[in-house]
Computed example of a mutant assay.
Amino acid sequence: MSLVDLIARADERGLAASGLACLDRCVPLLGGDDEVLRPLWSSLADGGADGDAWGERLAKARAELDCADPSADTVPGLGPDPAPGSGSGAETETEAETEAAVSDEDRAAALARRMLATAPGDPGASALRAWADACSAAALQIHRLLDVAADGDGPLVAAERRRQVAVLELLAGRGAGGLRPALEVSTEGRRVLRAVVSRRARGRS
């Protein structure tokens, strides 16, 4: 089954776990430690994302990672194109210069911050589905930005897609029992991304 189909068919716990797993793998971009989102995983195990614990723990994670503004919806160099005729040539050139100055790492980090900032604090199925879908796209874009391949789906992107599918399949097949192996899948991906971020940082030094 495709990734799109799996998200469309997932229940609330599966959607919350899918979005959380995407975010968890990208924590190295936010400067957080590996345990910062563990309380949210515990919330899913205890009763899903509709309990008070989820909202409280989400607020704490936002504070710890400095992503407290849920209205954060812009990403440097990845926002929508300006409407035709909306600005002068000089303004367009300035925007282009600004975009060129933003690194792939900055864009990736902004996408990760937006995933956390827009997580629904009191979610229903529709809110979780929209968030899980957005997190899936953002995580794939993050891995695309950091991939060694210049075009298309390189090894990082392909591996991220496989992990997203694996998490959704585990929750669909096992329910709450799929949370632990889903966390293990996410942990593996986080280690890979942390190594990529470290390698890129060494390359710039």
Rank of each mutant, 00 (worst) to 15 (best):
A176S: 14
H143G: 03
L171E: 03
E188I: 08
L146I: 03
P155E: 13
R163E: 13
A159K: 07
G178V: 04
H143I: 00
R190W: 06
Q141M: 14
E184I: 12
A172K: 14
G152A: 05
V148N: 07
V148W: 06
A176C: 09
R162H: 05
A172Y: 09
T187Q: 11
L156E: 04
G178D: 03
A182H: 09
G189E: 02
R162N: 11
S186G: 15
P181A: 07
A149G: 03
D151I: 09
L156Q: 08
L140Y: 00
G154R: 01
A172P: 10
E188R: 13
T187F: 04
H143T: 12
P181S: 09
A139S: 15
G189F: 03
L179V: 12
D153I: 00
D147N: 05
A158I: 10
E169A: 10
L140E: 11
G173I: 03
A176R: 14
L183S: 11
Q141R: 15
H143R: 14
L156I: 08
E160T: 11
V148Q: 14
E169C: 10
E160W: 00
H143D: 13
L140C: 10
L140H: 06
E160S: 02
D153G: 01
T187Y: 06
E184D: 15
R161Y: 11
G175M: 12
T187W: 12
A139W: 02
R163K: 10
L171P: 04
L171D: 01
R144P: 07
G175D: 06
A139F: 09
A176N: 04
R162C: 07
V185T: 09
V185P: 00
V185C: 02
G154P: 01
A182S: 15
G189H: 02
A166H: 09
L156G: 02
L183G: 13
G173M: 11
R174Y: 14
R191N: 13
R163F: 01
A159V: 07
Q164V: 03
A138V: 08
G189V: 04
E188P: 01
G177N: 11
L168V: 02
L156V: 07
L183T: 10
G175E: 12
R180D: 15
G178M: 05
A149K: 01
R174N: 13
V165C: 07
A149R: 08
G152V: 08
L183R: 14
A139T: 10
R163W: 07
A138M: 05
P181L: 07
E169F: 05
A176D: 13
R161V: 02
T187H: 09
G189R: 00
A166R: 15
A176I: 09
L146H: 00
G152S: 06
A172Q: 14
G178W: 05
D153Q: 08
L183Q: 14
L183A: 13
G175Q: 11
P155M: 11
H143A: 06
D151E: 15
V185G: 01
G152Y: 12
T187M: 04
R161I: 03
A176G: 10
D153S: 10
E160F: 02
Q141V: 09
L145W: 00
E188V: 10
D151K: 11
R190N: 09
D151C: 06
L146V: 00
L168A: 04
L145T: 01
Q141W: 07
L171M: 15
G175C: 07
G177M: 07
E160L: 02
G154C: 06
G178R: 02
R191T: 12
A150G: 10
D151W: 11
P155C: 08
A138P: 04
L168F: 06
L140V: 15
P181I: 03
